[in-house]
Nucleic acid binder design. Structure first.
Length: 853
RNA sequence: GGACGAUUAGCUCAGUUGGCUAGAGCGCCUCGUUUACACCGAGGAUGUCGGGGGUUCGAAUCCCUCAUCGUCCACCA
C-alpha cells in the first residue's frame, strides 16, 4: 500500500462523512447501551448560508459529541433550523424588491407571499444541511427539526394555551417598539442602539424651557415634570398654565417626579406618554391620558390637527419653523449626541407607539403545574441558575444574566409579520377561544398576528424531543447536557429557553451553558459584508480541509472571548494535519512482527508520556478546555511522538508499539480532526470505525515519572550537542567524537550517536574540547580544529556571568529564613537541589574556560 | 451612568487552585534534502507579563488605583 506524500482531504472528506452517515452511528438508537448525552444544536436561521460563527459552533459541539460517543454514551446531537420570522421575511422582501416588486406584501398578498418565503426557507435549509455535513458534524439527521414544522407548532400552541390559562399571557395596550419598515412590533431585546449626532431643541413652554430631540412628538404634551427637590420650580408644582404651543393654546400643569434630572437642560421636561417607553411608565404612574399622535406608517394621526396625515419625522423642520414664528424657540444645540433606537434586523429607526399586543407577564405569581409553588417567571429563571441546576461557562456571564432578569419587562410576543406561528387565539363576536386545535363551528376568526420567533425557539430542547407527548426520546434525552452557543444570544435565546422550559416542563432545558466568543478578522473587526472581510467557511474547507479549519477555530480560544481568524492560522493547522498523515504513513510502512521484544528506554518513555497525555486531554475535554486539549494532543503527536520516538525507532525499532501509540493518539485527536484520523484508522486496517472506538484510558500507574525524568536528561544532552553544532557551525556531515567518563548504556549511547551524529571514543587531550553536562550525563566533546578559541572564551564568560547572577540570587533566597520557614518543604528542597546543580555547572564552565587559556 | 472583558515575544494567543529561570503557533535569523513529511528537520534571537501601589517567603495570577481598547446593559426628555 502506498499513501501519497501529502494528505489529500478532497479525496476523503465527503466519502468519510457518507460512510459515517451510512453506519447509522450518529443515531443513538444504534449505539450500545449507555448513559444518554444530549446536545440540541442551536438552529441556524433559514436566511441563507452558514458563516464562521456557525462553523465554530459546529466544531465545538462536534468535539463534545464525538468525545462522549467514544466514552460509550448514547450521544445525541439534534439538528434543526429556525424559521426566524422577521429575519427570513426581511430577507425575502429584499430579494423581491430587487426583483422589481416594490411592495411585496401588498402586491402578493399573505398566501402568495408566504409561499415565496417558504421556497426560500427550503432552499436555505438545504444549503445549511450541506454545510453542516461539510464541517463533519455528527448530527443525527433522522431527528431533524424545524421551529415551524408540525410537531413544533403543536408545542408552541400547547405552551401558549398553558400560559394563557395561567394568566401569564395577556393582551395589553401599551407603548411598544414599532419598526415602520418591518411593520411589526419588536421585543425590547430586539431593539439596538446607534449613536447619532442630531439637533437638540430648547423651547419656551409656558413658564419653563423644555428640551427635546423630537419636537414632532410634542403636539399634545401638557404635563411638565420637574424634580421634587428642584428649587427653581418649587412654587410652580401642582399649578396649571395656559401655554401657547404648536397648534394654539394648551392647558398644561406641572408635577414633581424624581424621574426628572435637575442637571439636564433646564431641569424641566414635558412628557409624551404615547411615544416614549419611559414617559409611558410615568404617565401610568400619574394617571395621565395616553394619546397616539403617530401611526404605524410614521404619519401623524388626527390628534395632530392640521398636520394629520403628514410623515412625522419629515415634518420636524416645519414644526420647528412654526415654533420659531411664534417666538418659542429658545435655542438649538447642533451637536447633540444621543442613542437612536433601531431595529436589529433592518436598522430602521424604531417608533415607540401605543398598540394592543400580546404579552407574557414575567412578574406575576402563579401556581406552577409541576412544583405546585407560587412563583413568577422571573423567579423561575433566577432559581434555575442560582441553584446551580444550570452552570454557565464562563461563570462571569451569571452576573450578566441576573442583571438582564432584573431589568426585564413584560415580553411582547406578538408580531405583525406573516412568517411565523399564528397566535392560537380565535374570536367570534365577544367570544374568545384559545387552543391547540382550531375551534369547532362557524364564524371563528383567528388573530392575525404571529408569535415572536424566540417563543418557538425557546421550546427547542423539549419540542425537538416530541413534547408535549411523553415520548421515549423526551424521557431519555431531556434535559440536555450542554447548550453551546455564542454569548451574543444569551438573552434572546438562552434566557428564553430557561424561562419556557422551567415553566412548561418544570425542569431545566440543559445542565450546562457553554458560551463561545465571536469570530473576528485579523484586525479584530467584526466580519461583515459591508467591510468585505468575511471569510466563507466553505472556501477555507476547499483550500485547507475541514480538519484544519476546525482546529483554527478552536485552538487558541477561550470560552466567552472573541477570537481572530485568518488564513495563515488555518494553513498552520493544515500543516499539522499533514504531519499526522505523514507520521502515520511512516508507521504504516513498518512491518509489524509478532515477536515480543524487550522494551527500550524510548519505548518506556513514550508509553509513559502517552499515559500522561491521555489523562490530561481527557480532563481538559471534561472541563470544557477544548483548546488546551487539542494543543496537548498536537504537541504530543508532533514534538514527542514524531520528533523523538519515531526518530529513535529508526534504529531501535518497535513497530508494534509505534502502531499502538499511533492508534491511541488518533483516538485522542479524533474529536478535533475527525476526517484525517478516520482515514488513517481505516488504513491501519481497523474493521470498526474510529467514530465509535473506545476512548483511551490511563491511570497514574501507567506513568513512569522516573523514566520521563531520565529521558528528559537524555534529550537535554542531545540538544546541547546539537547546539554546539549550531554555535560552531559544524555540519552534520562531520562526525564529532565524544568521551564520557561515566558508564553509558549501549542503548543510550546509540541514541546520542545517531541523533547527534557523534562517535564515542577515548578521552581526547585537546584544549578545544568542551564539557557538556547535566544531572546525569557528563560528556567531553572534541571540537577538533573547528573552534575559535577567543570567541568561545567570550561565550563562556557570558554564560558564567549569567549563571553566577542566578546562583547568587538563589543563595540569597535560600538564606532568607522567612522563605525557608514558610514555603512548602518540597519547594525549598527543589530550590536547594537546583542550586547545587547550578553550582556544579558553574564549576564545569569555569574549568572549560581555564582549559582554553 | 453601570457592569464585564482585554492589555504577556514583531503578529495571533495560551497560561486551571499564587510556586521550577513565563509558553505555543506564525514570522524572523543560521544550518540542513539523513530511506514519513520542505505543508519538513536541527538550532537561535526577541518579554521591566499596560503603568503605579499593596498583600505574601513568593504575584502574569489575589487586592486597590490609573490608562488605553473593546463589549453588553441602562439611558437625559
Amino acid at each position: 500500500m502506498t499513501l501519497p506524500k501529502a494528505y489529500e482531504w478532497k479525496e476523503h472528506e465527503d466519502k468519510i462523512y457518507q460512510s459515517w452517515e451510512d453506519s447509522g452511528m450518529f443515531n443513538p438508537d444504534n449505539l450500545p447501551d449507555g448513559e444518554p448525552y444530549t446536545i440540541a444544536l442551536p438552529p441556524p436561521n433559514v436566511t441563507g448560508t452558514l458563516h464562521l460563527g456557525h462553523a465554530v459552533m459546529l466544531a465545538i459541539e462536534d468535539v463534545m459529541i464525538r468525545y462522549q460517543r467514544m466514552q460509550g454514551k448514547k450521544a445525541l446531537w439534534i439538528p434543526g433550523t429556525d424559521h426566524a420570522g422577521i429575519a427570513t421575511q426581511t430577507k425575502v422582501e429584499k430579494i423581491l424588491i430587487k426583483e422589481g416588486i416594490a411592495d411585496p406584501r401588498h402586491e402578493l398578498g399573505r398566501e402568495a407571499f408566504l409561499k415565496r418565503v417558504e421556497e426560500f426557507a427550503a432552499e436555505s435549509h438545504d444549503t445549511i444541511v450541506n454545510q453542516a455535513k461539510k464541517m463533519g458534524a455528527s448530527l443525527d439527521w433522522s431527528r431533524e427539526a424545524y421551529t415551524f414544522d408540525e410537531a413544533r407548532s403543536k408545542a408552541v400552541k400547547t405552551v401558549f394555551k398553558m400560559m394563557y390559562e395561567d394568566d401569564l399571557i395577556y393582551k395589553g395596550d401599551r407603548v411598544v417598539n414599532w419598526c415602520p419598515r418591518c411593520k411589526s412590533t419588536l421585543s425590547d431585546d430586539e431593539v439596538e442602539y446607534r449613536e447619532e449626532k442630531s439637533k437638540f431643541y430648547y423651547f419656551k413652554y409656558g413658564p419653563v424651557i423644555i428640551g427635546t430631540a423630537r419636537p414632532e412628538t410634542k403636539f399634545l404634551d401638557k404635563t411638565i415634570i420637574v424634580h421634587p427637590a428642584d428649587e427653581r420650580y418649587q412654587d410652580m408644582i401642582g399649578k396649571e398654565f395656559d401655554v401657547e404651543w404648536i397648534d394654539g393654546k394648551v392647558a398644561a400643569n406641572m408635577i414633581a417626579d424624581e424621574a426628572a434630572d435637575k442637571d439636564f437642560g433646564s431641569g424641566a421636561m414635558t412628557i409624551t406618554p404615547g411615544h416614549s417607553m419611559v414617559d409611558f411608565e410615568l404617565a401610568k404612574k400619574h394617571d395621565l391620558p395616553i394619546v397616539k399622535i403617530i401611526d404605524e406608517d410614521g404619519n401623524f394621526t388626527k390628534a395632530a390637527g392640521e398636520f394629520a396625515g403628514k410623515n412625522a419625522r419629515e415634518s420636524r423642520d416645519e414644526i420647528v419653523a412654526r415654533l420659531q414664528e411664534k417666538g418659542l424657540v429658545d435655542r438649538i444645540d447642533e451637536d447633540y449626541v444621543h442613542n437612536l433606537s433601531i431595529c436589529y434586523r433592518c436598522d430602521s429607526a424604531i417608533e415607540p407607539l401605543p398598540k394592543i399586543q400580546w404579552f407574557i407577564d414575567v412578574n406575576k405569581k402563579f401556581k406552577h403545574h409541576v412544583s405546585g409553588k407560587e412563583v413568577s417567571l422571573k423567579q423561575l429563571m433566577q432559581e434555575a441558575v442560582k441553584s446551580d441546576d444550570i452552570q454557565i461557562i464562563p461563570d462571569r456571564f451569571n452576573k450578566i444574566y441576573f442583571h438582564w432578569i432584573d431589568n426585564l419587562r413584560d415580553w411582547n410576543i406578538s408580531r405583525q409579520i406573516w412568517y411565523g406561528h399564528r397566535v392560537p387565539v380565535w374570536y367570534k363576536g365577544d367570544e374568545i377561544y384559545v387552543g391547540v386545535e382550531e375551534p369547532a363551528g362557524e364564524g371563528w376568526e383567528q388573530d392575525p398576528d404571529t408569535l415572536d420567533t424566540w417563543f418557538s425557539s425557546g421550546l427547542w430542547t423539549f419540542s425537538t424531543l416530541g413534547w408535549p407527548d411523553k415520548t421515549e426520546d423526551y424521557k431519555m434525552f431531556h434535559p440536555t447536557n450542554v447548550l453551546e452557543t455564542g454569548y451574543d444570544i444569551l438573552f434572546f435565546w438562552v434566557a428564553r429557553m430557561i424561562l419556557m422550559t422551567t415553566y412548561a416542563v418544570g425542569d431545566v432545558p440543559f445542565k450546562n451553558v457553554y458560551l463561545h466568543g465571536l469570530v473576528r478578522d485579523k484586525d479584530g473587526r467584526k466580519m461583515s459584508k459591508s467591510l468585505d472581510n468575511a471569510i466563507d467557511p466553505l472556501d477555507m474547507i476547499e483550500k485547507y480541509g475541514t480538519d484544519a479549519l476546525r482546529l483554527a477555530l478552536m485552538v487558541g480560544t477561550t470560552p466567552g472571548n472573541d477570537s481572530r481568524l485568518y488564513e495563515e492560522k488555518i494553513a498552520g493547522y493544515r500543516n499539522f494535519v499533514n504531519k499526522i498523515w505523514n507520521v502515520s504513513r511512516y508507521v504504516l510502512l513498518q512491518e509489524v512482527g509478532d515477536q515480543i521484544k524487550e522494551e527500550s528506554l524510548a519505548d518506556k518513555w513514550i508509553k509513559s508520556r502517552l499515559a500522561d497525555v491521555i489523562n490530561k486531554v481527557t480532563a481538559d475535554i471534561e472541563n470544557y478546555r477544548f483548546s488546551a486539549a487539542a494543543e496537548l494532543a498536537y504537541d504530543f503527536l508532533w514534538h514527542e511522538f514524531a520528533d523523538w520516538y519515531v526518530e529513535i525507532t529508526k534504529f531501535q525499532p518497535n513497530p508494534l508499539l509505534a502502531q499502538e501509540v499511533l492508534e491511541t493518539t488518533l483516538k485522542l485527536l479524533h474529536p478535533f480532526v475527525p476526517f484525517v484520523t478516520e482515514v488513517l484508522w481505516q488504513e491501519l486496517g481497523k474493521e470498526q470505525m474510529l467514530l465509535i472506538s473506545e476512548w483511551p484510558q490511563a491511570s497514574e500507574i501507567d506513568r513512569d515519572k522516573k523514566m520521563e525524568k531520565e529521558f528528559a536528561l537524555l534529550q537535554d544532552i542531545v540538544i546541547q550537542i546539537r547546539n554546539l553544532r549550531g554555535q560552531y557551525k559544524i555540519s552534520y556531515a562531520k562526525q564529532i567524537s565524544v568521551y564520557s567518563a561515566n558508564n553509558i548504556s549501549p542503548q543510550v549511547r546509540e541514541i546520542i550517536e545517531k541523533l547527534c551524529k557523534v562517535d564515542f571514543g577515548d578521552k581526547i587531550k585537546d584544549s578545544a574540547s568542551t564539557e557538556i553536562t547535566n544531572a546525569k550525563y557528563s560528556l567531553t566533546i572534541n571540537l577538533g580544529d573547528v573552534i575559535d578559541v577567543v570567541a568561545e572564551q567570550k561565550r563562556l564568560q557570558k554564560e558564567i556571568d549569567k549563571l553566577n547572577g542566578y546562583v547568587i540570587g538563589l543563595e540569597k533566597k535560600l538564606g532568607n529564613e522567612s522563605y525557608t520557614g514558610n514555603a512548602p518543604a518540597d519547594v525549598v528542597e527543589r530550590d536547594k537541589k537546583n542550586l547545587a546543580e547550578k553550582k556544579e555547572t558553574l564549576t564545569i564552565l569555569r574549568e572549560s574556560f581555564e582549559a582554553l587559556s
